[in-house]
Design a protein around this nucleic acid. Structure first.
Length: 473
RNA sequence: GGCCCCAUCGUCUAGUGGUUCAGGACGCAUGGUUCUCAUCCAUGUAACACCGGUUCGAAUCCGGUUGGGGCCGCCA
């Protein structure tokens, strides 16, 4: 082995192996993140492998969803493979095993297998299939309905998990494991082992739910005489009831979060902290900092509950940190073309509005319902305008008079406030300011009336106050 | 049922035998800042599952109990 080969054999390669049977979910996204970071940190490669051996359930649309999601999150992979395009490779390995009689055809029906399992469980035994077809000589299996299994073993399988330490399984409890439906159709564990070998994967970083697959895969590796990679099994992301996060928790796809107006960086930041921390109080991480600080050793062993409140907090914080240019560009995606037309007439309008709304947004999509009153006449109601105060119409009258006296060109928030303040102090701030604000926005919650009035302009502000007066009388 | 994994505030977690009657963050509560909401600030709330051992000393090490989770497919 020359030096270059030696180096190459030590090269770090990780992979994400989603099956395109559903959209990209948070769990998969986090696995992707950890694999991505680990590879990048070590100058290695991050490979995307689409595990689409199940033709029935795989769907190109899901593959696209996964690709789009990863792209949005900024987790670029170095290479992509599809298992559906690698049948010949699996076939070769399978033939080798079959020829050596390490693997064999099993003709038991699903019903027989199910009955066997039930019986074993009733007898409090480990459910497994030890097949008595191992030595059947029939070569005409083509006209029978069989699958290919790997002859079992009774050794103890040990492996060293990078996160959990040594894990031991009794292989005899596994039985003869199914490795392929037929020569052309490998099953998950088999295809996975071969690809990890062929793609020279050095570290398999995946969810804890794969721990029970690991001894099976090691058995296959032994049969094939190929090397076992390093394994690191990540704790699961849990729903509020502490069970594995799934659709029933309302778990939505990454692209759905995108649509709702979560920021990729906020999501990544939240997700990386689910089961990992840098060992100190730091919570905000730019991507570069993630690459710098992440380590497998600091990964937690227990599962982590997905807490949407904290995600929202991260998102709020990242929105606050966002540049106005970016915020403007991203929020534009959520508003109607009529509004956009108005913004095009007055380029500064959207920036002014955003300046006010920036600290209020949880997710970008909220922008629409928050700022409608800048573009459309608000729906006013007596009860909203009057709130708990009396003399509302006099206050509105006076407010109107004071505002009228301000010059159109100096109709700015500061001036408006200055002009109105003494009166508001005298009558009670709330008494004067609440109806003023409600008249402009039609909302119980909104930014302050001075800033809103400035953006609306003198003419529109007075119009709305007049309208409010009509409604109370 | 079998096997495997796990166990600090409601949630995410710091903590690797003593400096911790356990620190941070989210959430929640209270108060403050020019009406409301949000921001911002201050304060508060709340946890080492249990029982044994080891040790001068245990959240930290060991054993057990309990609890939770994962897997047990001709899915991945």
């Amino acid at each position: 082995m020359n030096f270059l080969n030696f180096l190459n054999s030590k090269k770090i390669r990780t992979r994400l192996a989603p099956s395109p049977t559903g959209p990209l979910h948070v769990g998969t996204a986090r696995t992707a993140l950890f694999n991505y970071i680990f590879a990048r940190q070590n100058n290695g490669n991050f490979i995307l492998r689409i595990d689409d051996t199940d033709k029935e359930r795989s769907d190109k649309r899901f593959e696209e969803d996964i690709l789009n999601g990863l792209k949005w999150l900024g987790l670029e992979y170095d290479k992509i493979y599809r298992q559906s395009e690698r049948e010949d490779i699996y076939k070769n390995y399978l033939k080798k095993l079959l020829d050596k009689k390490i693997a064999f055809w099993c003709y038991h029906s699903k019903e027989e297998l199910a009955a066997e399992k039930t019986e074993q469980m009733n007898k409090k035994e480990a459910p497994r299939h030890v097949c008595n077809h191992k030595n059947i000589k029939s070569l005409n299996h083509k006209n029978k309905n069989g699958i290919i299994r790997l002859g079992g073993s009774d050794e103890k399988i040990k492996f060293n998990d990078l996160i959990r330490g040594e894990i031991e399984y009794d292989a005899s409890l596994l039985g003869d494991i199914a490795i392929a439906k037929d020569e052309k159709t490998p099953l998950y564990n088999f295809a996975s082992v071969i690809d990890d070998e062929e793609m020279k994967i050095s570290h398999v970083i995946r969810g804890e739910d794969h721990i029970p697959n690991t001894p099976k895969q090691i058995l296959i590796q032994k049969a094939l005489k190929i090397q076992t990679p390093f394994y690191a099994h990540l704790p699961l992301i849990l729903g509020p009831d502490k069970s594995k996060m799934s659709k029933r928790h309302g778990s939505i796809s990454i692209n759905e979060y995108k649509r709702m107006g979560y920021l990729a960086q906020a999501l990544l930041n939240f997700i990386i902290l689910l089961g990992w921390n840098p060992g100190n109080d730091k919570e905000f991480f730019e991507k570069e900092e993630m690459l710098e600080l992440f380590s497998l050793q600091k990964i937690q062993k227990g599962g982590a509950v997905f807490n949407i409140e904290k995600l929202n907090w991260f998102n709020r914080e990242y929105i606050k940190k966002m540049s106005m240019g970016k915020l403007s560009q991203h929020t534009m995606e959520y508003i109607s073309s009529e509004w956009k037309a108005q913004i095009n007439k007055d380029k500064k309008l959207w920036y002014k509005i955003l300046e006010l709304e920036k600290p209020r947004l949880n997710v970008l999509s909220e922008i629409k319902e928050r700022v409608d009153f800048f573009f459309e006449k608000p729906q006013l109601s007596r009860s909203l305008l009057i709130h708990t105060f009396s003399n509302t119409s006099q206050h509105l009258d006076k407010t109107e008079k004071i505002l009228s006296s301000i010059d159109r060109h100096s109709f700015g928030a500061e001036n408006i406030k200055k002009a109105l303040w003494d009166y508001a102090e005298e009558k009670g701030r709330g008494n004067v300011l609440w109806p003023f604000r409600a008249a402009l926005t039609g909302k119980a919650k909104s930014p302050d009336p001075f800033s809103v009035a400035e953006i609306l302009g003198k003419k529109e502000t007075l119009k709305r106050i007049q309208h409010a007066k009509e409604i109370i009388t």
